[in-house]
Structure formats: C-alpha cells, structure tokens
Design a protein around this nucleic acid. Structure first.
Lengths: 336, 336
DNA sequence: TCAACGTGAGAAAACGTTTTCTCATCATTT
DNA sequence: AAATGATGAGAAAACGTTTTCTCACGTTGA
C-alpha cells in the first residue's frame, strides 16, 4: 500500500508480551478480565516500548476525532488569539486539539476549510470573527456537527456566546463615579457597530438622560479630535471619559497631555478591550474594560464539547460579563 | 460500539448504485478498470448523495493524516499569526489542515500538546516563537515526524527558517541614503537579542565605522528617551533614524513632533516589523521593514510537506529576505 | 472449435484500535 | 464423580477506506 512507519502498534506489544492484541487492549484500558499479573506485565512492556495508541484508529472506531475546528476571519488575531487560548486550555484536558482556519472573508476559502474539517470528522466547529454583528462568509447551519458562535453573529436557534457590552459600560461608569467623577462623556466608535450602540445605551442608562456620546472612528486620531471638540468650546469640560476602545483612549490621553490637562488628576480615562500593547504602553497606563475573551473561549470550548458528547445545551445568545483592569489612567488605583 | 453518525459512506453509495464498494472506490478515484458508463453513474450517485470520503479512514490506510501541528509560545500572536496565515495558505491546496497549539513557555503543557499531535499522527510539526534566539520549552529532536523551525531557535542539523535581519537593516539604510540622508543612527532593542545585534552589525557595515547604534528597550518610551539624548547634547543631530521596531519608531516620531522637528522633512524615520496597528496609525505613517512572515510561513509549510512526503530538504539555517514597506515617515514616497 | 486474451467487476486484506463473544481450564459444590 | 460456576484469554467483527488479486464472461484469432 504505502510505506509503513516504524511506530510501535498494539500488535508489536502483543507479540512482545506473547499475548493477543485483545488482551493488550484490555490490559491497557483497565477493562475486561485477566490476571492482574498479566495486566501489569503488559503495561510495563507497553510503557517500555513507548506504545501510544493511534488516535486515528480510535477515532474511526468511536466516530469521535477529539478535534474541533476554529474558523475565523479576524486576520489580526486581536480577538481570535485570546479566544483560541481559552478554547485550547479548556479542551487540552479532554485530549481535544484545535484546527485553526483563517478564512479572510473569502467564501470559497471558507468552504474549502469547512469541508476539510468535516472530512477530518471534527467533533464540532467554533466560529469567531472580529465583530459581533457580522457573520462569517459561510453558512454553518445544517452541518453534521455542532456549531458554536463566539464573538460573531450566529444563525437564530444556535448557541451564541459574546461579551456583555452593557456590563462593560456599566463597569466603567461605576468606576468613574467611584473616583468622584461627575461630568462623564463617552467617546466611541461608529454607531454602525452594534457593540458601540449597546455600550452607548448602557452608558446613557447609567449616566443619565443628558449623557454625551460621541461616535467616530475606532482610531487614535478620533481620540485627538474628540478632545479638541470637548476642550475647544466654551462648555464645561468633562472630568471623566469612557472610551470605546484602547486606541481611542490612547488618542485621548495623548491629546490631553498636549493640552496640559493631567491624567488622571484632572480627568479620568477608561478604555475598552484591554489590548495590552496599547493599554500598557500608554502613559499613564490605561484602566480599561476587559471582555474576558479567554474565558469566553473556555466556555465555547466546553460548550462544543457538551454538544459533541450529546449533552443538551440551551440555545440562544449568552452574554458573558466583562471585568475592569485597573491601571493608572483613571486614578483610585492606589487606594486598595 | 458507539452511536454511528448518519454520514453517507462508500457503502451507502455502493448499495445505492448496486455495485460493490471496491467498484465505487475505483470509480471515484479514476483508477481500475470499468465501463465508463458505470463510472459516470457511480460518480453522479455519489455526488447526489453528497458523499465525501472519511479522511480518518484514508489516513489510517495511508499513514498520512494530512495534518500538521504548529507549536508556538508567542501568546500575542504578533509573529505567529502572519506565519500561520502563510502556512495555511500554502497547505490548504494540498488538503492539509493545521493544529495550532499555544504553549506559553510551559514545558509540561508543551509535552501534552506534542504528544496529542503525535497521537493524532500529524505529518509534521512547525515550531515557532517570539524570538529567533530562544527555543521552545520542549525537545523536538528525535520525534517520529519531521520538524521545521520557523522564527525560533532550532537544534543543529534541523531545518531552520528565519528572516534575514541583515537584509532588513541594509534595506533601511539604502532607503535613507536614497532620500539623501547623511547622518544616520540606529535606535534599537537590547543587545541581548541576536536580532538586534545582527541588524546593528549590518547597519554599521552599511553606514560606516563610526555609525551610532543605541540599544534600549523595545518600547515607545525608549524611542522618546533616545530622541532626548540625541537632541539634548551639542552634537549635530541625525537626519535619519532606523528604529529596531515600530514601537520605538512610534516613540521617536512622537518625541520629534513634540520637539517641533518635522518628519519626514527634517528627519527620516524607518521602523521594523510592519506591525500595521503601529505603522499605519502613527502620524506620519511609518515606512518600515517587513520580515515577510507570511512568506516565511508559506515556505515552512511547503518544507514540512516536502519532508513529510520524503523529499530531501537541505538542513541548516535559511534566511529569507525582508521587504521595505514605504509609507510617509521616510519621505520619497511620492516620487514613484 | 478451442485457446488466448481483454474487459468489467467483486472478494478480501489491510490500516490500528476496541469490544463482544466464545471457549478452555480449573475450582467448587452436590 | 458429575455438574456448575468462575476465571483468564483469544478470535472475530467493526469503523471506512484503498488496492491487489481473482474470476467470469465475451471477443478475437488460428
């Protein structure tokens, strides 16, 4: 047929132990009946030979590949990597490995990857992306394996996991209040993003009816611009700014410094995302909302496992809480 | 044994077509002898039934899983993601999927993942990391599958792929010269990094014996600090700065702006890494050296495939050329 | 008319496991 | 002494493919 490798199989162990393969299998799996002496002998011979069962053969038998696919169009990895990390962490204990497929918004490529995963009999597929209000360029409904959507739009009736944006906004406002801020504004991304809108709504709810929300791009430049607008007029300037992401926050902090406004003494800043490369490098380092993506990944992994093993899982959208990561940009970080 | 799935197998097709499984197999693979009429009929029946061969079964037979493992300790994904993207792109045409395993510098975790990959009969393993002069916390020598090291330290005698740091430095200096710069300095990371040293050496080679190289941290803060040092004394200030990464470059650009020094009119800046989130967001946007990590990934993928299929591959360190990505921070970007 | 040959298609083995079933042996009970 | 039961271990089937071998049948040539 084809060149055989030299890996040691259960047959080799059987031969070495002078027993049948069935006996070896039962010995190693602690099943069946046999003299405990035989069992131990076989175990030691197998260990010595470095025998490890071929997972492919077991998969074929059990119809379980102990493999899941992670499909993403987030080429940057901004959201995918923490998620992946959580998934992997949750599943490695169960002997499950993860196929990562980056599909770059290309429907044809997506289909190729999905088919390849299906052919390899993945136990399930986790779909993720870079926005919760956009779906991947491929239809995952009606697949012969379970699907979980994490941080991306999913079809109705499916399991969808996402971060609770409202919770994140509440956390931020709560903190700003706690450090004594009264005039709080929200500088965030475009209102075409559901996330931005949800946070803005929760922000208004928490701050009050006349709360100011400024929509713009998700960029540092918009942070600068927003500061120019806020400090440029003759209205009273804010003493607390909740930013829609860490890049905007970075822009805001830099712009304030250029104006001689002190952060956090004069104004408290809170970001969103906890993208460490920004949050940590900004001076002062950003206090920011963390979406707990790793935890989200862990949940996604365990959910797909439940599904794969036939346990019932409640369908629908499930929002996981955020957490606040306290650094210096908001103040109050020493009080603890 | 276990719950069977309802996937359509070759047996189902055979039954539907009223022939034997061997005939179906030969029909679909265009092998063997049979009436072309039979062949076509079987093909159409298979297509209609949506038959796709179970890759697990083929793998078992061929001793090839069409699967490779990517092992990384770069949790950030700064280097791993472009690499992964290239690997995947190169291999998807060959029906090969990629297991991604993030091992976070944990030897035990690494071993677990490697064992899991081996059990699943991966055709090869690609190791990668965050530095070319550090190795992963696991010994990959003597594995029963081929290993390729990409952007991480590998054992002697193995295949090691990395970016050509010297080439990158030469590219940068060449460009600075081309836009007319005479007093060029290099602000880079710690000299404990082989990459930093290699680039520094190539820089000196290109600029001349009295070239100034400043080692510091890989941070924006160091960029600021370096500018303070360069502009703080009474020596002539440089008119071109080659930075060791984009974060330093960002710091340098910001510090210069604060001093009223114009970029690129007065001073040309070139970064390293082409980390778009920095390079693109800096004002002016950074001209920077790109290590071609995606191409490196592609090469790594094809190499592991060669190895897996028994083709000879020359062992040793192979350095792939960099490329310069021209934006605005160096000037000369309109001349083209 | 008979041998040689070509053609179409199926049977069976193989890949490496696990599990069910069967069976031989030996000890215990009547 | 014969029947029963417990114990230890192996044979075989199964998972879904591919490939080699075999064979029946029909055609061609002498």
């Amino acid at each position: 047929m084809v060149a055989r490798s030299n890996r040691v199989t259960i047959h080799d162990v059987a031969k070495a132990a002078g027993v049948s393969v069935s006996t070896v299998s039962k010995a190693l799996n602690d099943t069946g009946r046999m003299a405990s002496e035989t069992r131990e002998k076989i175990k030691s011979i197998a260990a010595e030979a470095g025998f490890r069962p071929n997972a492919l053969a077991r998969s074929l038998l059990f119809n379980r590949s102990f493999t899941v696919g992670l499909l993403t169009n987030d080429t940057y990895g901004r959201f995918t990597l923490p998620l992946m990390s959580g998934i992997s962490e949750a599943l490695v204990d169960h002997g499950v490995s993860v196929f990562l497929c980056a599909i770059e918004d290309d429907p044809a490529l997506a289909k190729v990857h999905v088919d390849a995963m299906l052919d390899k009999q993945v136990d399930g597929i986790i779909a993720t992306g870079k926005r919760v209000d956009r779906s991947l360029p491929v239809d995952l409904a009606g697949l012969p394996v379970p699907v979980v959507y994490a941080f991306t739009e999913g079809v109705p009736g499916s399991v969808i996991l996402t971060a609770d944006d409202s919770d994140g906004a509440r956390l931020a406002v709560e903190r700003l209040r706690k450090v004594g801020r009264k005039r709080i504004v929200h500088v965030t991304g475009p209102d075409s993003f559901v996330s931005a809108v949800e946070r803005a709504d929760a922000f208004r709810q928490a701050v009050g009816p006349d709360a100011l929300v400024m929509h713009g791009a998700w960029t540092e430049a918009w942070g600068h611009e927003a500061v120019a607008m806020l400090w440029g007029g003759d209205k009273p300037t804010p003493d607390g700014i909740f930013c829609g992401n860490d890049q905007i926050a970075r822009g805001v902090v830099d712009a304030l410094r250029e104006r001689g406004v002190r952060v956090p003494e004069d104004v408290s800043i809170i970001g969103f995302d906890n993208w460490e490369i920004f949050a940590d490098q900004t001076r002062p380092a950003l206090t920011t909302v963390d979406m707990n993506l790793k935890e989200l990944g862990r949940t996604a992994g365990l959910t797909i496992l439940d599904l794969a093993e036939g346990r019932a899982v409640e369908a629908g959208l499930r929002k996981l809480p955020c957490k606040l990561v306290v650094r210096q940009s908001c103040g109050g970080d020493r009080e603890i």
